[in-house]
Amino acid sequence: MPSSIDTSTAMLKKTVMIAIFAAVAVVLSIIESMIPLPFSVPGAKLGLANIMVLTCLYFLNGKDTLMLIVLKTILTAFIFGTFSSFLFSFFGAIVSFVLMYGMMRLGRDFFSLISISIVGGIGHNIGQLTAAMIIFKTSKMFYYLPALLLTGVVTGIFIGLAVKYLISALSKLTLFQGWAAHE
């Protein structure tokens, strides 16, 4: 039964890839927490973990990426956070994922990875502000949105470039051959 062996090999490959991506994403979050930002905008961050989310979205499908996000958020919450900060980052990550997935599916001819990563970063910020608005019952936090839009564009451009280079490097590995046909 060569076909079932093929399928289970593909499944195994996929599982390994998600696990590696999630591990790298968590490590990137830890590294990010050690880098001081030159600007102090509340909620702004580099979003290095988004490199792995976007790469996963490129090589695998939406369901697998959702799996990666859940893994990544739970692991990061265990390392840094408390339960409420887990809920906030999860909410941000889901909004970010939905927007990036939509753009990846529908707007690939019009937008490059740079746009997708900008939208993902800003989506994360908006998701967190919305979660904060629901919990604190005040919309005052949106005062910080314009500043977050500006930092989101700058960090999004760099994350998009990083993803571009990572994808072209990973495509040369045998593990990733046959997956890049996603485009």
């Binding site: 019009f110 740079i114 800003i122 564009v153």
Partner: peptide, 13 residues
């Protein structure tokens, strides 16, 4: 940069 990128960055800014 694609045309959509420039448009998107412009709108956000």
């Amino acid at each position: 940069l694609r045309r959509g990128d420039i448009l998107l960055i412009g709108i956000v800014l």
